[in-house]
Design a protein around this nucleic acid. Structure first.
Length: 823
RNA sequence: GCCGGAGUGGCGGAAUGGCAUACGCGCACGACUCAAAAUCGUGUUCCCUUACGGGAUUGAGGGUUCAAGUCCCUCCUCCGGCACCA
């Protein structure tokens, strides 16, 4: 009998598995398919820490069970390697990003392989591989051709440290998500994807998804749909209405029920129209100074406490509803990015009310509560009343006297009929700013045509690179550091930039912006299905077979980033007939983080990183895998604990001994052990539901039972099959020691016995007296209430406890409990 | 502020309305050992009791039920998401 030596058996079996190809996926038409995917990693220079492996272990366990259950399993892995971190790492280490990425991938892959995963590496993809990003560019071109990619010069978020424009999704509390710098608004030429066109579908299709509620809700809020009215009105010069300007302002209102109360207007301090609006008014300079002050204070987060600040612009809006001339104020609480950036304000909004009070702006009441006392206080402007549902409306006069809820539609119809407003739907979601002024990304495959002859001759405008010329390869370049000029480093390579226009053959310049880091990851799950296809993104037949990732595991940080982008691209690909499903991921499972034992995030900075290489070197991969799954509920964040890993190792030592030392074992016995069925059912459903911690616990309990029983071969083998997904190496080794020559990982998953729960079994029934523990009795599971009652009352222990008491009532739940109620 | 999730031993955590604290760590005692480590065994929610026993207990308070960690209401705390969003 040899000792359990994980190092020896793990290396041995990993080699054999790789050579035998038991994990290769294929479109086997005779078997149902199952596509399980963990988010592919970004290969940073830090390498993986133990927390990164949690999702990989989980999907590995899941995939292994599914394979044993007879599914044709797809469980691939690849690399998301374009983007700022790789580029910054390369700059810091003075190597080319491509080299940095190659090094980092090699390191990541060797670390991933330490856990003995069942990844089909023949399907490995890398977003920076021209054969891959050819198709990223192809998708962009299709969007361009459908008018979903457009050039814009709007002010966008600019990160002064990363020296690139960013999308809203790249911000965290107004700061750059990557480096934490305060972003500034900067007008610049950029490419934008019309994700807003898909807003409704992204919202509506959420309902059918088997996703955690917090993710769905997060996306709903991110999309931020709200229906309302868009009012349009002209700006006046003077309070008396003489000499009107040409400026027209649009205001959006979702709570328009009380629109007759509007007495003033506010505009965002960074609004594009503000400059024209203020031009020529009395005290213009002071106003501008104040506006500037508000803008600066806002950038410095000075208003987080809810302080209101504003300045009168000197202009008035001619109220379409006939409320006269409404003063236009600049207010710190108005945001340019939402609605139109201009708001009609009234006494029936907490914030507007407070603002009006502060600056003594006249207000008016048109909405009152039923409660008379409160009504008085509202009418005296003592409190703000904003209940648009239950409040009684006093205006418009022709509709007055009913609640806001009753009148909402009627008021909308009324003002629309009078052409004062129109119905609109606003979204918080903005179109996706898609260009980056950095080197390490997919080149945007477009050419700006300057036309033939000497300029200016107009040219063909922006022309798509012909699909036959894809990929537009990222050129080699000496200096790939960001330029900070609003152009990417690619602009400095004339031999790459200057090309002929594909349309007219005249002078053309390549687009020099690159795509954001999210581009390649927005469709990678599709490429795994058909990774080497040179002629098409993914073959239709093959796509149809694998269609839809059945289980997609990943982190919570992607709720409003990757998971929205990928859904958007997928829906677009559906629209052009490239894929057959409307959603990419049917089921989403969130991975909880693993914190360091000190409770903080694992980071080199804190020196608290648990390194998987070291942990596996010391304990073995199987112990490591079991431990990570046993730490706590999969979706929860848990703290790494160096001490507790000994538990799973002790468990495996016992398993090893149980199989290798048991000479008294009975010969092959196919009779079904009823007891083990309970574990088969429990462990299978635990894995199915990502409840790995309780599955491990059940395996530990089962092993104890088997140790005590002098297990027969059938039970032992069943146990090994149940443990195999968690601890693939030791189970494979023991399986072979039991005399098998094929792999345990392609055996049939244990089936639950049909014999369980059969009528007439003798069971141990719990007896309670007055709902408290009273004892237990053995009865047949199909006994009647009378029979059970008789047995219970004649049981000595129970009889003794009932001495001197009268039985008033019994409650019988067959198979569960008999509750005897006494006086 | 709005939305989502969670509060259970010394610690990580378990529990289709039916024996709360499974499983693991740690700790205590015992076996083995000259000794230690490792391993194995026993015990381990808290309080009272030498013991036998008894009492309390799932963030707080109320409710439904024969029976509540679990369902309902009010509140507190923590975590996560969104937010001067009109």
């Amino acid at each position: 009998m040899s000792e359990y030596d994980p190092k020896k058996i793990e290396a041995k079996w990993q080699k054999i598995w790789a050579e035998s190809g038991i994990y290769k996926s294929s479109e086997d038409q005779d078997r149902p398919k199952f596509y399980v995917l963990n988010e592919f990693p970004y290969p940073s220079g830090e390498g993986l820490h133990v927390g990164h492996l949690k999702g990989h272990i989980a999907t590995d366990i899941y995939a292994r069970m599914k394979r044993m259950q007879g599914y044709s399993v797809l469980h691939p892995m690849g690399w998301d390697a374009f983007g700022l971190p790789a580029e910054n790492y390369a700059i810091k280490h003075k190597i080319h990003p491509r080299e940095a990425v190659e090094q980092n991938i090699a390191r990541f892959k060797s670390q991933l392989n330490l856990i003995g995963p069942d990844y089909d590496w023949s399907r490995e993809i890398n977003t920076t591989d021209p054969d891959y990003y050819k198709w990223t560019q192809w998708i962009f071109l299709q969007m361009f051709k459908k008018g979903l990619a457009y050039e814009s010069n709007e002010p966008i978020n600019w990160c002064p440290s990363c020296q690139t424009g960013l999308a809203n999704e790249d911000l965290e509390n107004g700061k750059c998500e990557r480096c934490g710098s305060q972003v500034v608004k900067k007008p610049m030429r950029q490419w934008v994807l019309k994700i807003t066109k898909y807003a409704d579908r992204l919202l509506d299709d959420l309902e059918a998804l088997n996703w955690p509620e917090f993710i769905k809700e997060g996306q709903r809020q991110w999309i931020g749909k709200s229906d309302g009215l868009l009012f349009k009105a002209r700006v006046k010069d003077l309070p008396d209405g003489k000499a009107g300007t040409k400026i027209e302002l649009e205001t959006f209102s979702a709570h328009y029920e009380a629109c007759y109360a509007d007495t003033f207007v506010v505009i965002a301090p960074d609004h594009a129209l503000l400059d024209d609006l203020i031009k020529g008014v009395e005290g213009e300079k002071e106003i501008r100074n104040k506006v500037e002050e508000i803008n600066i204070k806002r950038l410095q987060d000075k208003y987080k406490t809810g302080e209101l600040e504003g300045v009168f612009t000197g202009r008035f809006l001619d109220d379409p509803l006939g409320n006269g001339h409404l003063p236009i104020w600049v207010a710190n609480f108005a945001v340019t990015d939402y609605g139109t950036g201009v708001i009609k304000c009234s006494a029936h909004d907490e914030q507007d009310f407070a603002f009006a009070k502060k600056y003594n702006i006249p207000i008016k009441i048109v909405l009152v509560p039923q409660d008379q006392e409160l009504k008085k206080r509202v009418e005296n402007f003592e409190v703000c009343y904003s209940d648009m549902k239950n409040g009684i409306l006093l205006e418009p006069l022709n509709l007055s006297g009913k609640t806001g809820a009753e009148l909402r539609d009627l008021i909308a119809e009324y003002v629309i009929e009078n052409k004062w407003a129109k119905r609109v739907t606003m979204y918080r979601l903005r179109d996706w700013v898609f260009s980056r002024q950095r080197y390490w990304g997919e080149p945007i495959p477009l050419i700006h045509c300057d036309g033939k002859g000497s300029p200016p001759t107009g040219g063909c405008g922006v022309v798509a690179v012909p699909e036959s010329e894809l990929p537009v390869k990222l050129p080699e370049v000496k200096h790939y550091e960001p330029t900070g000029t609003g152009e990417s480093p690619l602009a400095d390579i004339p031999e790459w930039v200057n090309v002929k226009c594909p349309k007219c053959g005249g002078k053309g310049r390549r687009e020099t912006n690159t795509m954001p880091q999210w581009a390649g990851s927005s469709w990678y799950y599709l490429r795994f299905v058909d990774p080497h296809n040179e002629g098409v993104l993914v073959d239709k037949k093959i796509e149809k077979y694998w269609a839809g990732v059945d289980v997609y595991v990943g982190g919570a940080e992607h709720v409003t980033r990757h998971l929205i982008y990928a859904r958007f691209w997928h829906k677009f690909l559906y629209d052009i007939g490239a894929v057959s499903t409307i959603e990419p991921f049917s089921k989403r499972i969130g991975t909880g983080l693993i914190h360091a034992s000190d409770g903080r995030k694992m980071s080199k900075r804190w020196g608290n990183v648990a390194n998987p290489d070291e942990v596996i070197e010391r304990w073995g991969a199987d112990t490591f895998r079991l431990y990570e799954m046993f730490l706590g509920p999969f979706a929860d964040s848990v703290a790494w604990n160096d001490e507790a890993i000994i538990g799973p190792r002790r468990f495996l030592e016992r398993v090893w001994k149980m199989v290798t030392q048991n000479s008294k074992r009975k010969t092959q016995n196919q009779s079904v052990d009823l007891k083990i069925s309970k574990y088969i059912r429990g462990i299978s459903s635990d894995i199915e539901n990502f409840k790995f911690n309780t599955a491990v616990s059940k395996l530990m309990i089962l092993s104890r039972e088997l140790e005590n029983l002098v297990p027969n071969t059938y039970n032992l083998e069943t146990f090994l099959k149940l443990l195999a997904p968690f601890a693939p190496h030791i189970c494979e080794e023991l399986w072979h020691q039991l005399g098998h020559t094929d792999s345990i990982h392609i055996q049939k998953w244990p089936q639950v016995s049909e014999l369980t729960g059969v009528e007439g079994n003798v069971i141990n029934l719990r007896v309670q007296i007055n709902s408290r523990i009273g004892g237990s009795i053995f009865v047949s599971s199909d006994s009647s209430e009378e029979e059970v009652k008789t047995v219970a009352l004649s049981s000595p222990i129970i009889a003794k406890r009932l001495e001197g008491k009268q039985v008033l009532r019994v409650v019988y739940k067959p198979g569960i409990v008999l509750n005897v109620l006494t006086n």
